[in-house]
């Protein structure tokens, strides 16, 4: 059944579900007022859909399509998009080139289907000519890509949506709530009865779930669960290093990080995977709570 929004009254709180961002979006609201929960759920859904429409790389009528089809022309961005691009530019710098919104083209070479089919090195090499944030001219709010280059905000889009929906709900509602988009989530607590939201985190190995109490914080998980390639005993994660065009090896299967915003948690967990065998060392240096599963 296709549906647009589902409202469920649970014990002392309400849950709103809606499909968006290629995952199940869920919002828990600490109220027993169904009208209020519905209104807040609508708010969450409309903000999520707005972001999805605006930044999905699968659409032909949004700002991402306009940038990617500019063919060398300069595109002047609106404030929100300029903010996202500026954020991505800062991440590129912070991560020493590991986080790069121009690296989406590598998907043309790599298909992570659990098989052992690695692409030919020449194919990857050719793609690298059109990859690299350093080749982009970014004079806010004006963005100029070389012809053939593309940007993809998929790496931060879902986390951004969680934080945006959180901000909308925070303003519209005074109680506790939790925004969960396929495991990337952000909560405000405690609930009116004094309890905290409980979330399950898979730790160490799949199947072992640890329940943690989340106050006002965010959680994001990055992992390769079913998306990897296996060849000659080497596991290639779906996390590609844009500097080489090749997947990171020896990365944890999944990394879950707690931070104050979903974007931060998501960046930490993504960067940790990119650090491969040094993932845990990197996270420990960041002074954040994390779980890594190898």
């Amino acid at each position: 059944m296709t549906y647009q929004l589902q409202l469920t009254q649970l014990d002392g709180y309400c849950r709103v579900n809606f499909p968006a961002m290629a995952c199940l979006c869920e919002v828990l609201i600490d109220t027993s007022d169904l009208q209020q929960a519905l209104a807040l759920g609508e708010l969450a859904r409309s903000e999520t859909q707005r972001i999805e429409r605006k930044y999905s790389r699968y659409r032909k009528d949004n700002i991402v399509a306009e940038i990617n089809q500019a063919d060398g022309r300069t595109v002047t961005l609106d404030d929100e998009t300029a903010g996202l691009i500026e954020f991505a530019a800062e991440l590129y710098d912070l991560s020493e080139g590991r986080f790069d919104i121009t690296s989406g083209l590598l998907r043309q070479a790599w298909t992570f289907d659990g098989s052992d089919r690695l692409p030919p090195a020449a194919t990857v090499e050719a793609l690298l000519n059109n990859i690299g944030w350093s080749r982009v001219r970014w004079q806010p709010p004006q963005l100029t890509l070389q012809p053939g280059m593309e940007i993809d905000l998929g790496g931060i889009g879902k986390e951004y949506a969680v934080d945006r929906v959180y901000a909308e709900l925070e303003q519209a509602f005074n109680g506790a709530f939790l925004v969960n988009f396929g495991g990337d989530l952000r909560a405000r607590g405690p609930r009116a009865d004094g309890s905290q939201w409980q979330i399950g985190v898979e730790k160490v190995s799949a199947g072992q779930v640890e329940l943690i109490e989340l106050g006002t914080a965010a959680v994001a998980t990055s992992g390769d669960s079913q998306r990897f390639l296996l060849r000659d005993g080497v596991r290639y994660s779906h996390i590609l290093d844009p500097r080489s065009g090749w997947p990171v090896t020896d990365a944890p299967r999944a990394v879950t990080v707690v931070a104050s915003s979903c974007l931060q948690a998501g960046i930490f967990s993504t960067l940790a995977l990119m650090m491969g065998s040094e993932a845990e060392e990197f996270l420990a240096a960041q002074d954040v709570q994390f779980w890594s599963m190898r």
Binding site: A167, Q264, L271, E278
Partner: peptide
């Protein structure tokens, strides 16, 4: 090296800039 570099502060600043002033910054 990135593995030892503290990126938290710059990341927090960048996130605050993106999300507006709404993010509670524990001062």
């Amino acid at each position: 090296q990135l593995k030892n570099k503290q990126i938290g502060k710059r990341l927090t600043l960048a996130t605050s800039a993106l999300l507006g002033s709404l993010q509670a910054q524990a001062a």
